[in-house]
Amino acid sequence: MRIARRLLLAGPALLAAPGGITPARAAAWSPDRPVRILIPYTPGAINDALGRLIGERFQEVLGQPGLVENRPGASGSLAIAATAQAAPDGLTIVVANTANLCMNPFLFANTGYDPRRDLAPIATVARVMNVLVVRADSPYRTLAELVAAAKAKPGALSFASSGAGSSPHLAAELFKARTGIELTHVPYRGSAPGLADLLGGRVTLSIDNLPNVLAHVQDGRMRALGVTGAERDPALPDVPTFLEAGFRGVEVYVWFGFVGPAALPAAIRDRLAGAIIGIANTPETAERIHRAGATVWTQDPAQMAALIEAGLQTWGSVIRAANLRIE
């Protein structure tokens, strides 16, 4: 993937503002205390890695450290709700993802926040695409063969996901909706057990985040049939996109970004956005984000707001059509 914004040099250039934000506005605020960075999941998750990679440069860029605080629970909703309720002073932000902001509001009766009303988009920093995989000895060698088999025997093929309502589950629901096929969902508590059952032949396929399946594809135990990106991933250059394989409307990324309370003043929001985007695009941090399994992909506050709105439209339709609800 192309890095969405040019690489910035370390030091003063980290203060450069993203598009649409004037340098004067981006530099108009400085925190007087450490910035608390909430993480919706346990240590080790990609949100956690991104929060730490960005936060460790806050002292250099903002003059105050970024302190990471893991607050898992309710599929990430606890940390997002806590941020929505925090004082709008720029001292509490959260690393959210597509599921937190665009899926959970339709899956749960009460998340404790409305992404449009209660949160202020600040900046995205990275994204990952999904990959449809089967076992290496599967009879299906292309997406077209898989779709034809699913249409011939509705519900006979099964797919593993990391849990009901997870982004891999909803990516598969989107695939079903776009192709008109029926697949049987087998949810697991995380990607690892689902992929283990795929390798064991107990399920037919999985559409999972690329970092979760890459090693299995590279060591020859799984076959990748398609990636959900707009273009092929450099790690799997021989694997076509869904569009290349003839299936439109299955472009799916899980993106990660920072949001704050809705009443966050524009000067504070823009200062944080300039710092976060600048840090993410430095060569050192970009490389470390890549090693964490993601691709640097930065969006400013207005772009992130549009991204959230588009995601709410897409995933709201998918979730309603699949009649999904998590109690």
Rank of each mutant, 00 (worst) to 15 (best):
S206T: 03
S206R: 01
S206D: 04
S206G: 02
I207M: 12
I207R: 05
N209P: 01
N209F: 10
L210C: 03
L210N: 00
P211T: 05
N212L: 13
N212A: 15
V213K: 15
V213G: 09
L214S: 02
L214I: 07
A215N: 03
H216S: 13
Q218W: 07
Q218F: 04
D219N: 13
D219A: 06
D219C: 08
G220L: 12
G220F: 11
R221Y: 11
M222F: 08
R223K: 13
R223T: 14
R223N: 10
A224T: 04
A224W: 11
G226H: 13
V227L: 14
T228Y: 12
G229Q: 08
G229Y: 03
G229T: 04
A230S: 11
E231N: 05
E231K: 14
E231P: 00
R232F: 10
D233I: 12
D233Q: 15
A235K: 09
A235H: 09
A235M: 10
A235W: 04
L236A: 01
L236K: 09
L236G: 00
L236V: 05
D238R: 15
D238F: 12
V239D: 07
V239K: 10
P240V: 03
P240G: 08
T241D: 14
T241W: 12
T241S: 14
F242W: 07
F242C: 01
F242N: 02
L243D: 10
E244H: 09
A245S: 14
A245R: 04
G246D: 06
G246I: 04
F247N: 00
F247A: 01
R248N: 06
G249Y: 07
G249L: 00
V250T: 02
V250N: 09
E251P: 06
E251K: 02
E251R: 06
E251F: 01
V252E: 07
V254Y: 04
V254A: 03
V254R: 04
W255S: 10
W255Y: 14
W255H: 12
G257P: 05
V259L: 04
V259I: 00
G260D: 09
P261R: 01
P261V: 06
A263E: 13
L264H: 05
P265C: 05
A267E: 02
I268P: 03
I268E: 02
I268C: 03
R269M: 02
R269A: 06
D270S: 10
D270C: 12
D270R: 04
L272M: 09
A273S: 12
G274D: 01
G274Y: 03
A275L: 09
A275S: 13
I276S: 07
I277A: 09
G278K: 10
G278D: 09
I279L: 07
I279D: 07
I279V: 08
I279A: 05
N281S: 06
N281G: 01
T282E: 08
T282P: 01
T282R: 06
P283K: 08
T285C: 03
T285V: 15
A286F: 11
H290D: 10
H290A: 15
H290R: 13
R291N: 15
A292V: 13
G293W: 11
G293E: 08
A294Y: 08
A294M: 06
A294S: 14
A294P: 08
T295P: 00
V296L: 13
V296T: 15
V296Q: 10
V296A: 15
W297F: 15
W297G: 00
W297N: 09
T298W: 14
Q299I: 01
